[in-house]
């Protein structure tokens, strides 16, 4: 079981280039979602002076951004790659710090948008958050997803970027579990008893 106070600390202690899976409890999804954003974008982002690149496949960037604002995340520290608003036909008010993809099936373009954002700020520390493996799995066949995560995470590892993959426990499948076991260095299970920030 992981408490709110030590999640950020655990992520901050991860060696550069690590990949971590954060397993969220579906019964406490809202709390855990908030906790995950708080620990990654705010705790790791601000306290290690890193920029966050948040790949949003589950929720539109507008929601992610409103949560980040609630958590007092400075706008210049967060970039969102939004792969869901377009297919939800919810693209009327684009955010200046978000970049929009037509579909979560354009996995190569997700990778290239992350690459672009990393190249825009060379020499800057970064944390990349993938939200989430389950949502990606809804839109993509497992083998394609395997290829994507394998190549993306290897690239990020080579660049010493900390990557956090959100995954929803119980919503998972053996294929996703196998995939996560292959690509991440550590899995953190957000159990009961975790309070929202």
């Amino acid at each position: 079981m992981v408490t709110e106070s030590d999640l950020g600390e655990r992520l901050r202690r991860m060696p550069p280039g690590s990949a971590v899976a954060l397993r969220l409890d579906p019964a406490r999804y809202a709390d855990h979602y908030l906790l995950a954003i708080n620990a990654t974008v705010r705790d790791v982002g601000i306290e290690t002076n890193a920029r966050s690149i948040y790949v949003s496949v589950t929720n539109p960037s507008a929601l992610v951004w409103s949560i980040a604002q609630t958590l007092d995340v400075p706008p210049e520290r967060l970039r969102i790659v939004d792969a869901i608003s377009h297919i939800m036909m919810d693209y009327r008010n684009p955010l200046p710090n978000a970049t929009y993809l037509e579909s979560p099936r354009m996995l190569e373009n997700i990778m290239l948008r992350v690459e672009y954002l990393l190249r825009k700020e060379p020499g800057q520390r970064h944390i990349v958050v993938i939200d989430s493996v389950n949502s990606l799995a809804i839109h993509n066949p497992t083998k394609l997803l395997n290829e994507f995560l394998h190549i993306l995470l290897n690239n990020l590892k080579a660049r010493q970027v900390l990557t956090v993959l959100l995954a929803v426990r119980d919503d998972s499948s053996p294929a996703i579990d196998q995939l996560l076991a292959l690509v991440v260095d550590e899995t953190i299970d957000l159990g009961e008893g975790v309070a929202p920030p």
Binding site: E108, N140, K143
Partner: peptide, 18 residues
């Protein structure tokens, strides 16, 4: 796969899937 960006063209392997 090609992505056109303000810093130029970026390329990624084209994933083949199954």
């Amino acid at each position: 796969v090609v992505e056109m960006t303000p810093i130029g063209l970026l390329l990624a392997p084209h994933f083949q899937g199954e």
